[in-house]
């Protein structure tokens, strides 16, 4: 991240960004960030709920292969499906991105539950973690670390999905900004946009996910 910020500062000092359309870039980034945040929140709620419910279900072992197959479907293969139902709208971009972020979160939760030691699952049962209490006091904290790692993977895919869908929809946001830039050629605005998105992604990873992962690893260490 430091390298990117230094590179940006050097480029700014040499006047590379002179003439960049800062207001357009700012609005595009706000649009993309908004869609991404909403998509992540939907994906988190969806992935975590389905993962914990499947993990709690007595059919867990039978359902696991189904989700393995589902996870291997490339997320962009589902884009026409979302366009068909929602058109070139905000909802399409958000739900499409949510579907691609939810998959790694769901997969990480299911793996965590599957790989939990049998002794630990037995202890939870013997000490009374049954029904919804099993979800709340055993499966959810057991999966907390997996939700974080799944989120880190999902978010990387999520940026790609939001921007990819924006390019296809060509309505607003950073994807549309890139599309316009690719038509008009590399200019100060497109370089500034590229660096801005890199700084945003690195900053979120460094300031949000890295501390959460470190804390989770500390408590979940065997």
């Amino acid at each position: 991240m430091v390298i990117i910020i230094v590179a940006t500062a050097i480029l700014a000092a040499f006047g590379v960004f002179r003439g960049a359309s800062w207001p357009s870039l700012g609005i595009a980034l706000v649009h993309t960030a908004y869609r991404f945040i909403v998509a992540y929140l939907i994906a988190l709620a969806l992935g975590a709920s389905i993962g914990l419910l499947v993990g709690w279900s007595p059919l867990f072992d039978a359902l696991l292969p189904v989700f393995d197959v589902f996870q291997s479907i490339p997320s962009f293969a589902l884009l026409p499906f979302f366009i068909y139902f929602f058109g070139f709208t905000d909802t399409m971009i958000i739900l499409f991105a949510a579907s691609s972020i939810a998959c790694p979160i769901l997969s990480a939760i299911l793996s965590a539950i599957k790989d939990a030691p049998q002794d630990q699952a037995d202890a939870a049962t013997v000490f009374g973690a049954r029904g919804w209490k099993r979800v709340r006091f055993y499966l959810a904290p057991l999966s907390a670390s997996a939700i974080l790692t799944g989120s880190v993977v999902g978010i990387a895919i999520g940026w790609e999905s939001v921007i990819g869908a924006e390019i296809v929809a060509n309505t607003s946001g950073f994807g549309a900004f890139i599309r316009t830039a690719s038509v008009s050629g590399i200019d100060a605005s497109s370089v500034a946009g590229l660096l801005a998105i890199l700084i945003l992604v690195f900053a979120v990873n460094r300031l949000v996910w890295a501390p959460l992962l470190a804390k989770s690893t500390k408590h979940h260490a065997k």
């Binding site: 002794d119 202890a123 013997v126 907390a144």
Partner: peptide
Amino acid sequence: TPAMVPRDHALFPWL
């Protein structure tokens, strides 16, 4: 009221 002390103690690492 049964209780168990499992082979690998099976404590919950998040608690």
